[in-house]
Design a protein around this nucleic acid. Structure first.
Length: 658
RNA sequence: GCCCGAAUAGCUCAGCCGGUAGAGCGACGCUCUCGUAAAGCGUAGGUCAGGGGUUCAAAUCCCCUUUCGGGCUCCA
């Protein structure tokens, strides 16, 4: 028997018997690797472990410890889900079942339009565990597309995929992962099953026994190929991990996210509510929420004043002619509220503030000496969001943009962008965010306005700003809007979720449409460039993100109540009032709670309200001018802290915004 | 907008196969005056989201509407 040699990622070379597979290679390297192996990457392409290796191949054994391995694990688990559903629901057919972040899903169609209920998940999951227990091998078979069409005769969605990927019938791009190209497709049989076979490009784990740390999560509807013109399929979502521990950690993160849900905390902390009478996506702000919001806005205004911005205001509605000129009625109409007619003219609620700021710019002749001109407004906008898309403060129909528009000369773009990005990051950092991820979106291939040199300049400016800021960023080639390139900034919150907040967009379009110009030093009249910039994005959404980030425990500078004073008994009420008054004179937000309830109860109430400091005052304190300090998060309370010392400490904490 | 699910006291929820509404917390009142996460007793509070239908009888079954949740799509 002749031998083949293959190379490993570390550069070493191994001799194997001809016909050996990646699984054999893993076994030859060590039993641990053989057990952990999920798939192989052979000459750069993912392959099943069972696939025979060619002489001279470069082979990497992939374990579930890597993203790639996990991906396969999840993909294979999706197949097991499909097998379970087809077993349990006669007449069911299946569509696609890819791995996704943290898990997988599979889309099905049940006979006679039947649907899954949450209770079905238990039954399906039990069947999946039986399939995993049976340790069925995944066996790859390649065949001509025509044969596959016959094999999947009873499954119209599979047939559609085959036609799309192998026979050139137009289809959505994400389906390409489901089968191979060139008139041939691949399928995976589960040996030992009741003849289950799925159309799939692979690769898969060696057998179902390799799987197991998964949970089915929910069922929902999803359109075939994501288009609302297509039939609605039944989608089942699940999560799958390499180890029991990873699965438990993921489920714990989900529970933590639920605990932090801003809609729940908004009710518990009396911040915001959504009365049904207002309609979807429309909130009212209660005193506590409004106070936090005011503090956020005041801080933002202060920073903008320092940053050379000028404040402007604009109305909530404007005549249709404004939106015709701006182009919004052409490309944004479906997100706009319908017009209201008055005196024979249509007025539209504004979905954006930019045209108004353009009006401010255009209100008088501008000189190069006026540039860059930075206009800022906390502008309320209204957008028609699909009713099913509305979600608390994070997605609403009315919200307030912290919107700035910067008008500058072409040669000022780069410096302006650099200082702009630095400004954005510095303000976000003040709210407790330290991890950022940016995305640079460049010129679309087809439809765009402005000349290429201008795009190149602006894009280079954005890139330089990102690099100066030392920001981690990805480039979305061709992902920019038609009117200019942009940077989006995501922040990572306390439990690792990322939120898209800030955006910096260069715009060559509006200055053109509104015929903006300025008088240059040589007397010529060039067009200014406009930069749109939202920092919080939406004040409401940013507030919601903050609530979740802090789990409702706002830092002292933002907390609606910074300290609560609890007299031990009625006899200490006067001293308690004195303590509260002293702190209030320093501008601190302090409440007192009289001794009508037991102290333990009042401490509990303060803790539940997530108040940063609980101050307990009794005989000793009244005599010595001290307070007992029970700080949020501290292991045990401090006793006999001089009032001046505590006041200075809280004032310093507020000042430092820590 | 579409699919699935949900809506019972201010909040969290119980209420089975239809027989006519309950708890805990909260609020209010009285008692208790207390050194660090829930004192005791009492009172009020619900057209069971709204409307229609089936039935001797509907919180419960059916239809419509509204709002919410999870998705699809979209996005700040």
């Amino acid at each position: 028997m002749s031998a083949i040699s293959v190379s490993l990622p570390d550069g070493s070379v191994r001799e194997l018997a001809e016909g050996s597979s990646a699984a054999d290679l893993a076994a030859a390297i060590g039993p641990r690797l053989a057990a952990d192996a999920v798939v192989a990457v052979v000459d750069g392409a993912e392959r099943d472990l069972a696939a025979p290796l060619g002489d001279g191949a470069a082979v990497e054994i992939v374990t579930a410890a890597t993203e790639r391995g996990l991906h396969t694990l999840r993909h294979s688990t999706a197949h097991v889900l499909a097998q379970a559903v087809l077993d349990l629901y006669p007449g069911a057919t299946f569509a696609i079942g890819p791995p996704i972040e943290h898990g997988f899903y599979y889309d099905f169609e049940l006979p006679d339009g039947a649907t899954f209920a949450d209770a079905d998940l238990e039954r399906i999951e039990a069947r999946m565990r039986e399939i995993i227990e049976a340790d069925q091998p995944f066996r790859r078979v390649e065949m001509a597309a025509e044969d596959a069409l016959e094999l999947f005769e009873a499954h119209p969605y599979k047939r559609a995929i085959i036609e799309a990927v192998a026979l050139g019938v137009a289809a959505g791009g994400d389906l390409a992962s489901e089968a191979s190209e060139g008139g041939r497709v691949s399928c995976y049989h589960n040996d030992g099953s009741d003849g289950f076979v799925d159309l799939c490009l692979g690769p898969h784990v060696a057998s179902t026994g390799r799987l197991g740390h998964f949970a089915l999560q929910r069922v929902s509807g999803a359109y075939w190929r994501g288009s609302e013109r297509n039939p609605m399929l039944q989608r089942i979502y699940g999560t799958a991990w390499a180890t029991r521990k990873d699965l438990a950690a993921h489920l714990h993160r989900l529970a933590e996210a639920e605990r932090r849900d801003h809609r729940r905390l908004a009710a518990e902390l009396d911040l915001v509510s959504w009365p049904a009478e207002l309609g979807p996506g429309l909130a009212v702000w209660h005193p506590n929420g409004a106070l936090v919001r005011t503090l956020m806005e005041d801080y933002s205004r202060g920073r903008h004043a320092d940053g050379g911005y000028q404040f402007v205001y604009s109305p909530h509605i404007a005549k249709s002619v404004l939106w015709e000129t701006s182009g919004h009625l052409d490309f944004y109409a479906e997100s706009m509220y319908p017009p209201m007619e008055m005196d024979g003219t249509d007025y539209y609620p504004k979905p954006m503030n930019c045209p108004f700021h353009v009006m401010v710019y255009r209100s008088s002749q501008r000189s190069y000496r006026d540039l860059p001109m930075r206009l800022f407004e906390l502008g309320a906008v209204y957008r028609y969001e699909l009713s099913g898309a509305v979600h608390g403060l994070l997605r609403s129909r009315g919200f307030t943009q912290d919107d700035a528009h910067i008008f500058c000369a072409r040669d000022q773009i780069a410096t302006e962008l650099a200082s702009l990005l630095e400004f954005v990051l510095s303000v976000l950092a003040a709210f407790g965010f330290s991890e950022f991820q940016a995305k640079l979106s460049t010129r679309p291939a087809e439809k765009y306005v402005g000349d290429e040199a201008l795009w190149d300049d602006a894009t280079a400016g954005l890139r330089a700003a990102l690099e100066t800021a030392g920001l981690d960023y990805a480039t979305d080639e061709g992902g920019g809007a038609f009117y200019g390139p942009k940077i989006d900034v995501d922040v990572r919150d306390a439990i690792g979720r990322s939120w898209q907040l800030s955006t910096i967009q260069v715009d060559f379009n509006l200055p053109e449409r509104f015929g903006l110009e300025y008088v240059a030093s040589d007397g010529s009249r060039p067009r200014p460039v406009m930069i749109h910039r939202a920092l919080f994005g939406s004040v409401e959404r940013f507030f919601g993100v903050l609530v979740e980030h802090f789990a409702g425990a706002f830092p002292a500078w933002l907390a609606p109540v910074q300290a609560t004073v609890l007299p031990v008994a009625a006899a200490h009420a006067d001293y308690g009032a004195e303590v509260a008054a002293t702190l209030r004179r320093l501008g601190l937000r302090v409440e007192t709670s009289p001794a009508e309830e037991p102290l333990g109860k009042r401490v509990r109430n303060a803790k539940v309200a997530k108040i940063p400091y609980v101050l307990v005052v009794g005989d000793d304190d009244a005599a010595a001018g001290t307070v007992g300090v029970n700080a949020r998060g501290a292991k045990k309370p401090e006793r006999d802290v001089p009032l001046e010392e505590f006041a200075a400490r809280l004032a310093a904490e507020v000042e430092a915004r820590s």
